[in-house]
Amino acid sequence: MEELYDFMVWGDYDAKIEYLANMTDENWNFHEKTNNLILKNYLKYTTKKLEEENKIMTTDNYCIINTGLFTPYYEPIYIYAEKNLSDSKQDWWFKSFSTSYDLGNLGITELPERANYFQDPSQLVFDVNCKINVQFKHIYDDEDNRNRIPKEIVNSKNIHSIFKGAIDTMVKKVTANYKIAVPQYFNGKIQLLLPLCLVDESIPDLALVVTKVNNVYQGHTCLTMEMAYNNARLIAKPESNWLVP
């Protein structure tokens, strides 16, 4: 599967996604945007993960996908599609976003599981006993990374001192409150996102991505807030107050 959008006939895709966004009662937009880009990204990668885990339920007549999302009443939300009998290249025709009650009314009681992103829950918690090794050369010299750094920092002669100070402060914060570290799923791995406040010590500018390797964390790269939220939202809605859309 390349894209969920191409997996079935949707009709007005944006309208369907807007309906799902309202069904979850969650904010799926960055700042003042209205395109539900976070939700579209979430569905794209969640469906790919479900396909990898062989959790997309298909029969001769219908297809059901567990979105991993919930209504405000904690009811799981499923994508329900029926067999497409037209000449379209897609096998399925989107019918509805449904709860288990809705599907039960159709006589469907066997339902697929959610995507599973981790086997070891300890991966989700920052280990304060592990030091962090940061790949500074990649962060400073890689063009994509440099473009993510605030201009007043990337052009500063003291960029390294600023980063080192922000990392030291972040380590103290996460040591005092382990919930500051937010897990993300990327390229089949669980990593942690850590806030870096470079311009204003109370406002995160970037998220440092770290992966635990034995007894240390390897700091690979930095992400913008939008990139970090998109990756983190695949696992769960971040509860930390520094990573919000």
Rank of each mutant, 00 (worst) to 15 (best):
Y73N: 12
Q119P: 00
P150N: 05
Q90C: 08
K83I: 15
R114Y: 09
I159G: 02
D127A: 10
F163T: 05
I149S: 01
K89G: 02
D144G: 10
D120P: 02
N145C: 15
F118V: 08
W93P: 01
E113V: 09
N116W: 04
N105T: 14
T109G: 09
A81M: 08
D120S: 07
I132A: 05
S96R: 10
F186L: 10
F186G: 03
Q135L: 13
P72G: 05
P112W: 08
N105S: 12
G107K: 05
D102R: 06
Q90V: 06
N145P: 05
N116G: 08
H138W: 08
N155S: 08
Y80P: 04
L106M: 14
G104A: 07
I132M: 04
N177H: 07
Q123C: 09
I139S: 04
I77E: 00
F118C: 05
S122Q: 13
P112A: 11
Y80N: 07
D168T: 13
Y117V: 07
D144P: 03
N145M: 14
N133M: 14
P183I: 06
F94D: 00
K95L: 10
E113P: 02
I79G: 02
S88T: 10
Y78L: 03
Y78G: 03
I167Q: 02
S156Y: 05
N155Y: 06
R114T: 14
N158Q: 12
N155A: 05
S96V: 06
K172L: 11
E113Q: 15
T109R: 10
S96Q: 13
Q119H: 14
V154N: 00
Q184A: 15
